[in-house]
């Protein structure tokens, strides 16, 4: 089915580029709510990608994975995070360590580095080439976001974005891991979010602030 494959290419490319754009856009977002919304969109796109692949590959277990991703990352985690944000009364990120234009430039440099270095890779061809590059870019950029931001909540969201990127990488390399593994990963992430939520309120209680610069005082 050559034609079907062409369709798969363009659709997967479209969705993954969308994911990349949401992550890049996060560099310029200041309001907590829009930050969270970008993460939600990213997760929804990931779920959509899995659903589309499931449809074209005719793999039943990918439907399950897509549904689980949709529920956990698209609904539950954003809901939990929104609750935490509201509880802790954080609306805005303070001025980031690196200003917005510069961080956008650095993000694009990261994308270029990934694309140029992975083009020489041995195992990337056909369907998964683009998603894999995008996934690595997402991982690096979200790590970069964690570096530039100061609030603990943004760190958590950055971590979750990295997790999305890793999920995408795993998916693009294996056409979906077995269901039990994906369920396990999703469960891990959920637990992680809950624990991090507790941590955030503890940090807030101890330092009266969620600014991570204060954590340097813990150093011996």
């Amino acid at each position: 089915m050559p034609k079907a494959w062409v369709v798969v290419y363009s659709i997967t490319d479209f969705i993954t580029i969308g994911m990349l754009l949401t992550v890049v856009a996060m560099n310029s977002l200041k309001r907590m709510e829009s930050f969270l919304r970008a993460y939600t969109i990213n997760s929804l796109l990931l779920a959509l990608l899995m659903a589309v692949s499931a449809f074209y590959l005719d793999a039943a277990h990918l439907y399950i994975a897509a549904a689980v991703t949709l529920v956990s990352k698209g609904v539950v985690i954003p809901f939990l995070l929104k609750k935490v944000v509201r509880q802790l009364k954080i609306t805005h990120e303070v001025e980031p360590n690196i200003n917005t234009p510069l961080s956008l430039v650095i993000s694009s440099i990261l994308v270029v580095v990934v694309y140029s270095s992975l083009s020489r890779g041995i195992f990337i061809e056909g369907f998964t080439e683009n998603p894999l590059k995008v996934s690595i870019s997402i991982i690096l950029i979200s790590l970069f976001i964690m570096i530039t931001r100061k609030k603990a909540v943004t760190q958590v969201i950055g971590l979750l974005l990295m997790e999305n990127g890793l999920f995408l990488a795993g998916f693009s390399l294996t056409y979906g891991m077995s269901t039990i593994i994906e369920l396990g990963v999703v469960f891990d992430v959920l637990m992680g979010v809950i624990i991090l939520g507790v941590f955030l309120s503890q940090i807030k209680k101890t330092f009266i602030d969620l600014d991570l610069d204060k954590l340097t005082t813990l150093k011996g």
Binding site: S117, I139, L140, L143, F144, I147, K150, L212, L215, K219
Partner: peptide, 25 residues
């Protein structure tokens, strides 16, 4: 090297990853 600053530690990781990508990618 141990400043106690979380962002700096993450920066080390990012730097290492990028270098690894460029060298062995």
């Amino acid at each position: 090297l141990q400043s106690g600053n979380l962002q700096l530690y993450l920066g080390y990781i990012l730097g290492t990853l990028v270098v690894l990508l460029v060298v062995w990618g």
